Amino acid sequence: MNYNDYELKEYAATTERQWDVSAAFPVLMRKVYVWMTMALVITGITAYGVANSPGILQAIYTNQILFWGLIIAEFALVISVSAAINKLSLPVATLMFVAYSVINGALLSYIFLAYTSSSIATVFFITAGTFGAMAIVGYTTKTDLSSMGKYLLMALIGLIIATLVNVFFVKSTGFELILSYAGVLIFVGLTAYDTQKIKQMLMQAPDAGETAQKYALLGALSLYLDFINLFIYLLRIFGKRE
């Protein structure tokens, strides 16, 4: 085989690989948003159902063991899915994601008691619009957002620490409002950053097999968390109290 034949075969192989990636990529990205939407629906239905079930609501918010047990379970599920995604099967990882969505919904049930239904709906649509705009930015921008992501993650750690300090020590509503604005900015940025990261990760997938789908599920979890946190911080700013 001469050099030209070799080049032709290499070109054909590269083109085939590119076709495989481009064929798998939209399927995987679609799964990311399908799983994310599924989780949001489950969370919303669970939150509304628990809010309208006085017995369950009272059990969650008066039983400290149950309340903190649910919070610990949330952290355990997120860490387990993220750290062990390669070892988990797709059905198990999906079930853990669903379980997380249910627990998160149960813990978020208080918003239906604290805020008016109209303001919750309004803030949800504001969140959806903001999230969608930043997801488009992250998907289409040619700028590498990885350096921005590092600063956002550091800011997120600072936000968590400041929130805990305010909850247990400062207990200032003014400081809580400042933290809410900071939270909105952080999760607006993280939405764009995570979208770009997910896109780059899935573009390298050779096919839409189980391994690639598990990473798509992990991407859906990241975007779900961005959406939920953005919604909560916007609700604290714009939500009308009952």
Rank of each mutant, 00 (worst) to 15 (best):
F124A: 13
A212H: 01
I42R: 04
N63M: 08
T15P: 01
F67S: 07
A106W: 05
V32Q: 07
R236V: 04
Q213V: 09
T195D: 06
N2S: 07
S119M: 02
L235W: 01
A76R: 03
A208Q: 06
S53Y: 12
K9Q: 15
D5G: 12
K197P: 02
K31F: 14
L159P: 06
G149M: 08
A47G: 02
L145R: 08
S222G: 07
L88G: 13
L217R: 03
A133E: 01
Y224V: 13
L8G: 12
A114M: 14
A220M: 02
L77M: 10
I103E: 04
V50W: 11
L57R: 11
L70S: 09
A208V: 03
T143W: 12
D226Q: 00
P26V: 01
Y193I: 10
I161A: 13
Q204D: 14
S147L: 14
L152M: 01
I45M: 01
F25E: 00
A39V: 10
L28E: 04
N63Q: 09
G55K: 14
F227W: 05
A212G: 04
I42C: 01
V81Q: 09
I45L: 05
V21T: 12
L8P: 03
Y100K: 13
V137N: 09
F238G: 07
S118D: 15
A93S: 07
S80C: 11
E16L: 02
K142V: 07
T46S: 09
M1L: 08
I178E: 13
N229I: 14
E210G: 08
I60V: 08
L66E: 11
L88P: 03
G138P: 02
F169P: 11
T195W: 00
I161V: 12
G149D: 08
L70M: 15
T163E: 11
S89I: 07
V81S: 09
G189V: 03
L190C: 10
Y224I: 07
A133N: 01
L88E: 11
Y33W: 07
M148A: 14
S146L: 04
F238I: 02
F231C: 09
W68G: 13
T37S: 11
T140V: 11
Y215S: 08
P26L: 04
T116W: 02
A128H: 05
I79S: 10
M1P: 04
S180D: 08
L40E: 02
I157F: 13
M201I: 15
M201C: 12
A59S: 14
T15Q: 12
G55N: 14
S119D: 00
M96L: 15
F25W: 06
F231H: 05
V123A: 04
V41M: 05
S53P: 09
L107S: 01
Q196K: 08
V184S: 06
K150W: 05
L223T: 02
A216T: 10
L40R: 05
I186C: 02
G174P: 06
L225Q: 02
M154E: 14
A51D: 04
A192F: 04
P91A: 06
M134R: 03
Y224T: 13
K214S: 06
Y139T: 03
A93W: 10
V98D: 05
F175K: 13
I56F: 15
V137G: 05
S222Q: 08
G55M: 14
K171E: 10
S82C: 06
F97E: 13
A83R: 15
L28P: 01
G44K: 03
I237D: 01
N86Y: 11
L230Q: 00
